[in-house]
Design a protein around this nucleic acid. Structure first.
Lengths: 310, 310
DNA sequence: TTGATTTATGCTCAAATAAAGTATAAGCCA
DNA sequence: TGGCTTATACTTTATTTGAGCATAAATCAA
């Protein structure tokens, strides 16, 4: 039966594993990278690896010294799907999203935590829509898209929240891809001559790593609303405001404090430790911990967080 | 820079592509399979393939004669993650979910459409919870799980909706995996001697194909609620009841007719064609078509369908 | 010591959504 | 014609959101 499906072993390809490991460092959602913040940890899937996940763990720990906690698969690409070059050798990349608490302020060795919004400055709406969205991105996209009624511009407007459209933080990937299409990011004209001057602000990365990061951000922003994943990023005890700040960091938008607390408490996701946080700067806050019993159930059944839907 | 990431080409592995192609055939959500309904269409990713998706298209069309429409990636497994056998040769499977309108009543050749619920009879709650859930599955899981207060039983109860828990149609994968763990499906004791007699009703499939199908069902049931994917399964014009039946088929639960119509219409997903359907059996219904303009936007921005949340 | 400032927390209110049911219309068929 | 089926308009009620008011409890600077 198996033979019916496989015609031979002469088409084997190289398989790479890539990790987007995220933590919230001093209120900034950050990603662990090497090469000065340009390269995501990665390496080939090898014979010695017991599974994809254990292979990934081995590579990340070797390259960054950071242990991998919670991980989930993101997406699998074939190189020729993305690098563009037809004749590139056959390679496949399997990307993962990892969530952790940042160890050691800045890890030793060549790896470091870099804020998401260094790569995607237009994605941080915690203090309102960033100026560059309207001052830089909108005019350049408009110029690129042509007529104000064109399909292309309508897509850009709905994805970036122009022309009265609401901002939707989950569309991080579509926004990056649109900028790429428009030639407004460095990755779009690598090797080619051209007008880098038109690039929108934001650090670029090696190969398609910034795209993979955008995929991770979009996935996490979606997931945080219905699954209790934030807790993977939190210390064992925390105040509700700290929890709120983590949600805001990831979703990139502000949250109504009272409603946030109401939703969290009514779902019984957390319980009081009985201690108080002393250093909140104002009235001391109760400390909470995640309720492990609920954790199990909610991991399966879902949660709600008050991040606007449209 | 690339060298930093790759240590050599001596670890190449075989990559398989697997498709779960779904259509609604006479009201039954169905999957296209070969081998008499036991095997999902699949084949190795080859040098000649321009991309993963085009490779998949080639295999599915060769094996089934059916064209592939909308597809999205489901999950990537390494064989040793699943088949269990440690020493199995290195192979990776990339699975895809495809949605289409069924061509030709029963396609020629060795492929055929088989209803999802032949494989997962406990997943069809359109006419209420099936009897086998309480008469077969609950007692066997209870026996397997041990004490009524055990972690294991609590998990089973919450996933299957026992002990007053609500049924959640999105948990199709978790349910299958639990039955597998409990040894209640044929796949759990292949090659091993043992009590097949305890197996729960439902067709099994080759290798882990039934698990892949469960993954597809769960994904689709989640996605249908916030993205207009049902339309991929519909003919160009349809009545609202036909649309509702398709949603019910996929989600496996009944929908309140009036509320369904209200939600669909208020979102402007569809428009009247002006024609009426004559053969509805009762009062003739208006015919609708999907609004393509909205399609573009909704594909990005999302939709709502009235399938209960918990 | 006091008042400004900051954070925490309890509570209200109105708008928007969702869930369920009532009522009536318009075809078919025996 | 009456019974059955499906279509479609509307009402009712409960629940969930989004937003804001008010008060409490700390710090800090004058």
């Amino acid at each position: 039966m198996r033979d019916l499906l496989k015609t031979g072993k002469d088409h084997d390809v190289q398989v790479d594993l890539i990790a987007v490991l995220t933590a919230v460092v001093d209120g900034a959602p950050s990603v662990l990278a090497i090469g000065g913040g340009e390269v995501l940890p990665s390496g080939p899937f090898e014979l010695g690896h017991r599974s994809l996940q254990s292979g990934l763990r081995a590579w990340v720990e070797r390259q960054t010294g950071h242990p991998l906690g919670y991980i989930e698969q993101l997406y699998t690409f074939a190189d020729s799907d993305r690098i563009g070059g037809e004749g590139s050798d056959r390679a496949i990349s399997i990307s993962y999203l990892g969530l952790t608490r940042a160890k050691e302020p800045q890890a030793s060795g060549p790896s470091s935590w870099t804020g998401w919004y260094d790569y995607f400055p237009w994605e941080d709406h915690r203090l309102g829509a960033p100026a560059l969205l309207f001052e830089v991105i909108e005019p350049r996209l408009r110029k690129w898209a042509g007529e104000a009624k064109s399909e292309t511009w309508l897509r850009a407007a709905s994805v970036f929240g122009f022309d009265g459209h609401a901002w939707n933080e989950e569309l991080a990937l579509q926004r990056y891809e649109l900028l790429f299409e428009a030639g407004l990011v460095a990755e779009a004209h690598r090797g080619k001559p051209g007008s880098e001057s038109a690039d929108v602000p934001g650090r670029s990365m090696f190969a398609d790593h910034r795209r993979i990061l955008a995929t991770a951000i979009a996935r996490l922003r979606t997931k945080i609303k219905y699954r209790p994943v934030v807790f993977e990023l939190m210390p064992p005890v925390f105040t509700l405001l700290q929890l709120q700040r983590a949600v805001e960091a990831l979703s990139g938008r502000p949250v109504h404090k009272q409603n946030f607390r109401r939703l969290i408490e009514q779902q019984e996701l957390v319980e009081e430790t009985g201690e108080m946080a002393a250093d909140t700067g104002g009235r001391p806050a109760k400390l909470f911990r995640f309720r492990p019993a609920i954790h199990m159930e909610r991991t399966v059944m879902g949660t709600r967080l008050p991040v606007a839907r449209s």
